[in-house]
Amino acid sequence: MIDLTRTPVTLVLIVINVVASLYVLHRRPGWLDKLAFKPERILRHGELYRLLTAGFLHVHGAHLLVNMLTLYFFGPWLELYLGPLRYLILYLGADLAAQGLALIIQRTNRRYSAVGASGAITGIVFAFCVYEPFRMLYLFFAIPIPAILFAIGFVAVSMYAMSHRGPGQAGGLAHEAHLGGAIGGVAIILLLDPVALPHFLQQVGL
Protein backbone atom coordinates (compact mmCIF):
# COMPACT_ATOMS: atom_id res chain seq x y z
CA MET A 1 0.00 0.00 0.00
CA ILE A 2 1.15 3.52 -0.79
CA ASP A 3 1.30 5.82 2.23
CA LEU A 4 -0.49 8.97 1.05
CA THR A 5 0.31 10.80 4.27
CA ARG A 6 3.80 11.28 2.80
CA THR A 7 2.31 12.85 -0.34
CA PRO A 8 -0.27 15.39 0.88
CA VAL A 9 -0.93 16.97 -2.53
CA THR A 10 -1.88 13.64 -4.10
CA LEU A 11 -4.08 12.87 -1.10
CA VAL A 12 -5.86 16.23 -1.32
CA LEU A 13 -6.36 15.92 -5.09
CA ILE A 14 -7.93 12.48 -4.68
CA VAL A 15 -10.19 13.70 -1.87
CA ILE A 16 -11.33 16.76 -3.87
CA ASN A 17 -12.05 14.65 -6.95
CA VAL A 18 -13.98 12.02 -5.01
CA VAL A 19 -15.99 14.43 -2.83
CA ALA A 20 -16.82 16.85 -5.67
CA SER A 21 -17.75 14.08 -8.11
CA LEU A 22 -19.93 12.11 -5.71
CA TYR A 23 -21.63 15.24 -4.37
CA VAL A 24 -22.55 16.49 -7.84
CA LEU A 25 -23.56 13.04 -9.11
CA HIS A 26 -25.78 12.17 -6.15
CA ARG A 27 -26.89 15.51 -4.70
CA ARG A 28 -26.62 18.13 -7.46
CA PRO A 29 -26.72 16.34 -10.87
CA GLY A 30 -27.80 19.58 -12.57
CA TRP A 31 -24.44 21.11 -11.71
CA LEU A 32 -22.67 18.71 -14.06
CA ASP A 33 -23.93 20.68 -17.04
CA LYS A 34 -23.15 24.01 -15.36
CA LEU A 35 -19.56 23.06 -14.47
CA ALA A 36 -18.56 20.90 -17.46
CA PHE A 37 -16.05 21.92 -20.12
CA LYS A 38 -18.11 23.51 -22.92
CA PRO A 39 -16.20 25.49 -25.58
CA GLU A 40 -19.19 27.62 -26.51
CA ARG A 41 -19.84 28.70 -22.93
CA ILE A 42 -16.16 29.46 -22.39
CA LEU A 43 -15.54 31.38 -25.61
CA ARG A 44 -18.86 33.14 -26.08
CA HIS A 45 -19.93 33.69 -22.50
CA GLY A 46 -16.57 33.99 -20.73
CA GLU A 47 -17.21 31.12 -18.30
CA LEU A 48 -13.51 30.49 -17.74
CA TYR A 49 -14.16 28.70 -14.45
CA ARG A 50 -15.17 25.65 -16.52
CA LEU A 51 -11.49 25.16 -17.43
CA LEU A 52 -10.89 24.25 -13.78
CA THR A 53 -14.17 22.81 -12.49
CA ALA A 54 -14.52 20.26 -15.31
CA GLY A 55 -11.30 18.58 -14.24
CA PHE A 56 -12.65 17.63 -10.81
CA LEU A 57 -15.95 16.05 -11.86
CA HIS A 58 -16.74 12.64 -13.38
CA VAL A 59 -19.74 11.22 -15.21
CA HIS A 60 -20.01 8.01 -13.18
CA GLY A 61 -18.29 5.91 -10.54
CA ALA A 62 -16.19 3.81 -12.93
CA HIS A 63 -14.84 6.96 -14.59
CA LEU A 64 -13.87 8.31 -11.18
CA LEU A 65 -12.38 5.01 -9.98
CA VAL A 66 -10.08 4.51 -12.98
CA ASN A 67 -8.76 8.08 -12.79
CA MET A 68 -8.19 8.00 -9.05
CA LEU A 69 -6.48 4.59 -9.15
CA THR A 70 -4.12 5.88 -11.84
CA LEU A 71 -3.36 8.99 -9.79
CA TYR A 72 -2.84 6.82 -6.70
CA PHE A 73 -0.23 4.67 -8.46
CA PHE A 74 1.69 7.40 -10.33
CA GLY A 75 1.18 10.59 -8.34
CA PRO A 76 3.08 9.77 -5.13
CA TRP A 77 6.28 8.82 -6.99
CA LEU A 78 6.34 12.18 -8.77
CA GLU A 79 5.34 14.17 -5.70
CA LEU A 80 8.17 12.66 -3.64
CA TYR A 81 10.65 13.36 -6.45
CA LEU A 82 9.51 16.85 -7.43
CA GLY A 83 8.24 18.13 -4.09
CA PRO A 84 4.66 19.29 -3.40
CA LEU A 85 4.79 22.68 -5.19
CA ARG A 86 6.33 21.52 -8.48
CA TYR A 87 4.08 18.47 -8.46
CA LEU A 88 0.98 20.64 -8.04
CA ILE A 89 2.17 22.88 -10.88
CA LEU A 90 2.57 19.78 -13.04
CA TYR A 91 -0.94 18.50 -12.25
CA LEU A 92 -2.76 21.79 -12.75
CA GLY A 93 -0.62 22.73 -15.76
CA ALA A 94 -1.35 19.42 -17.49
CA ASP A 95 -5.04 19.90 -16.77
CA LEU A 96 -5.02 23.36 -18.35
CA ALA A 97 -3.03 22.07 -21.32
CA ALA A 98 -5.65 19.35 -21.78
CA GLN A 99 -8.52 21.81 -21.70
CA GLY A 100 -6.60 24.24 -23.90
CA LEU A 101 -6.06 21.77 -26.74
CA ALA A 102 -9.67 20.61 -26.51
CA LEU A 103 -10.79 24.25 -26.64
CA ILE A 104 -8.77 24.89 -29.79
CA ILE A 105 -9.92 21.74 -31.59
CA GLN A 106 -13.55 21.83 -30.48
CA ARG A 107 -14.06 25.60 -30.53
CA THR A 108 -16.81 25.40 -33.19
CA ASN A 109 -18.54 22.32 -31.76
CA ARG A 110 -21.56 23.67 -29.89
CA ARG A 111 -22.49 20.20 -28.59
CA TYR A 112 -19.09 19.34 -27.11
CA SER A 113 -19.10 18.75 -23.35
CA ALA A 114 -16.57 16.95 -21.16
CA VAL A 115 -15.63 16.37 -17.53
CA GLY A 116 -12.94 14.35 -15.80
CA ALA A 117 -9.40 14.45 -14.47
CA SER A 118 -8.12 12.33 -17.37
CA GLY A 119 -6.17 15.17 -18.97
CA ALA A 120 -4.29 16.06 -15.80
CA ILE A 121 -3.66 12.41 -14.94
CA THR A 122 -2.43 11.66 -18.47
CA GLY A 123 0.09 14.46 -17.91
CA ILE A 124 1.18 12.78 -14.66
CA VAL A 125 1.62 9.41 -16.41
CA PHE A 126 3.64 10.93 -19.28
CA ALA A 127 5.84 12.87 -16.87
CA PHE A 128 6.54 9.57 -15.12
CA CYS A 129 7.43 8.03 -18.50
CA VAL A 130 10.11 10.71 -18.98
CA TYR A 131 11.86 9.52 -15.82
CA GLU A 132 11.17 5.80 -16.19
CA PRO A 133 10.79 5.03 -19.94
CA PHE A 134 11.40 1.31 -19.48
CA ARG A 135 9.40 0.78 -16.29
CA MET A 136 6.70 -1.80 -16.90
CA LEU A 137 3.18 -0.40 -16.83
CA TYR A 138 0.11 -2.59 -16.77
CA LEU A 139 -2.44 -1.78 -19.45
CA PHE A 140 -5.95 -2.35 -18.08
CA PHE A 141 -4.09 -3.28 -14.86
CA ALA A 142 -3.14 -6.63 -16.43
CA ILE A 143 -1.07 -6.36 -19.65
CA PRO A 144 2.63 -5.44 -19.07
CA ILE A 145 4.08 -2.85 -21.45
CA PRO A 146 7.19 -0.59 -21.20
CA ALA A 147 6.27 3.00 -20.38
CA ILE A 148 7.80 4.40 -23.57
CA LEU A 149 5.79 2.03 -25.78
CA PHE A 150 2.65 2.90 -23.87
CA ALA A 151 3.31 6.60 -24.46
CA ILE A 152 3.90 6.14 -28.20
CA GLY A 153 0.82 3.96 -28.57
CA PHE A 154 -1.31 6.34 -26.54
CA VAL A 155 -0.42 9.30 -28.76
CA ALA A 156 -1.03 7.27 -31.92
CA VAL A 157 -4.44 6.05 -30.74
CA SER A 158 -5.48 9.55 -29.62
CA MET A 159 -4.53 11.13 -32.94
CA TYR A 160 -6.29 8.37 -34.89
CA ALA A 161 -9.44 8.72 -32.81
CA MET A 162 -9.41 12.51 -33.20
CA SER A 163 -9.09 12.24 -36.98
CA HIS A 164 -12.09 9.91 -37.13
CA ARG A 165 -14.35 11.90 -34.81
CA GLY A 166 -17.46 13.09 -36.62
CA PRO A 167 -18.04 16.86 -36.95
CA GLY A 168 -20.23 18.12 -34.15
CA GLN A 169 -20.02 14.79 -32.33
CA ALA A 170 -20.79 14.93 -28.64
CA GLY A 171 -19.93 12.34 -26.01
CA GLY A 172 -17.32 9.60 -26.03
CA LEU A 173 -13.75 9.84 -24.83
CA ALA A 174 -12.13 13.29 -24.78
CA HIS A 175 -9.11 12.33 -26.89
CA GLU A 176 -8.16 15.97 -27.40
CA ALA A 177 -7.88 16.48 -23.66
CA HIS A 178 -5.85 13.28 -23.26
CA LEU A 179 -3.38 14.36 -25.93
CA GLY A 180 -3.20 17.89 -24.54
CA GLY A 181 -2.53 16.55 -21.06
CA ALA A 182 0.22 14.27 -22.37
CA ILE A 183 1.93 17.11 -24.23
CA GLY A 184 1.51 19.45 -21.27
CA GLY A 185 2.87 16.90 -18.80
CA VAL A 186 6.05 16.35 -20.80
CA ALA A 187 6.58 20.05 -21.54
CA ILE A 188 6.03 21.11 -17.94
CA ILE A 189 8.30 18.43 -16.48
CA LEU A 190 11.10 19.51 -18.82
CA LEU A 191 10.66 23.10 -17.64
CA LEU A 192 10.43 22.19 -13.95
CA ASP A 193 13.39 19.79 -13.98
CA PRO A 194 16.24 20.66 -16.40
CA VAL A 195 17.94 17.27 -15.86
CA ALA A 196 14.86 15.31 -16.94
CA LEU A 197 15.66 15.49 -20.67
CA PRO A 198 19.33 14.40 -20.51
CA HIS A 199 18.30 11.68 -18.06
CA PHE A 200 15.68 10.43 -20.51
CA LEU A 201 18.05 10.58 -23.50
CA GLN A 202 20.69 8.64 -21.58
CA GLN A 203 18.20 5.89 -20.71
CA VAL A 204 17.06 5.45 -24.31
CA GLY A 205 20.66 5.44 -25.57
CA LEU A 206 20.71 8.83 -27.36
Rank of each mutant, 00 (worst) to 15 (best):
M1C: 06
R111H: 14
T5Y: 11
L92Y: 06
M136D: 09
V19Q: 05
W77Q: 09
V195M: 14
G168V: 08
V155G: 08
S21Y: 02
L13G: 04
F150C: 04
A196D: 07
L179F: 14
F128I: 01
I16W: 06
I105G: 03
T10R: 01
I148C: 02
M162I: 15
V157L: 14
A147V: 02
P167W: 04
L48G: 12
G93I: 08
R44I: 01
R165E: 09
Y23A: 08
T70I: 13
F73P: 00
L149C: 09
L191V: 15
G55F: 01
L25Y: 02
V130K: 05
V66L: 12
A114L: 05
V66Y: 12
Y87D: 04
G119D: 06
A151H: 08
Y49S: 08
A177E: 11
P144V: 10
F150N: 01
L85F: 13
H178V: 13
A156F: 12
G168M: 12
V12I: 14
L64Q: 02
S158R: 00
T70C: 12
Y72Q: 06
S158Y: 03
V115C: 01
P39V: 09
L139K: 06
F56M: 00
V18L: 11
L149V: 09
H199F: 11
L82V: 05
A102E: 08
L48P: 02
M162R: 03
E47T: 03
V15D: 06
H178I: 09
G83L: 08
S158I: 01
E40D: 11
F140H: 06
D95V: 06
L69I: 12
V18C: 03
M68T: 09
V195E: 12
H26C: 07
I148M: 04
T5E: 11
G30C: 08
P198T: 09
A161Q: 14
Q99I: 05
V59R: 09
P133G: 14
I2L: 10
L57M: 11
A142M: 14
L22E: 09
L43I: 15
Q106D: 05
L51K: 02
G166Q: 14
F141E: 06
L190R: 07
T10H: 03
L179S: 07
T122A: 14
T10I: 04
V18A: 08
A170V: 07
L82F: 11
A97K: 00
I2E: 15
G100V: 11
A102Q: 06
F134R: 14
H45Q: 12
I104S: 10
A142L: 13
L139E: 06
L69Q: 11
H175W: 15
H58W: 00
L88S: 07
L90D: 02
A94D: 13
R27K: 12
M159V: 15
A36H: 01
I145G: 04
L71Y: 07
N109T: 01
G61V: 04
T70H: 11
P146F: 09
G166H: 10
A20D: 02
A177L: 08
R28A: 13
L173E: 10
I121T: 04
G153C: 06
R111V: 05
Y112W: 15
R6V: 06
L65W: 14
M1K: 08
T122C: 13
T122G: 07
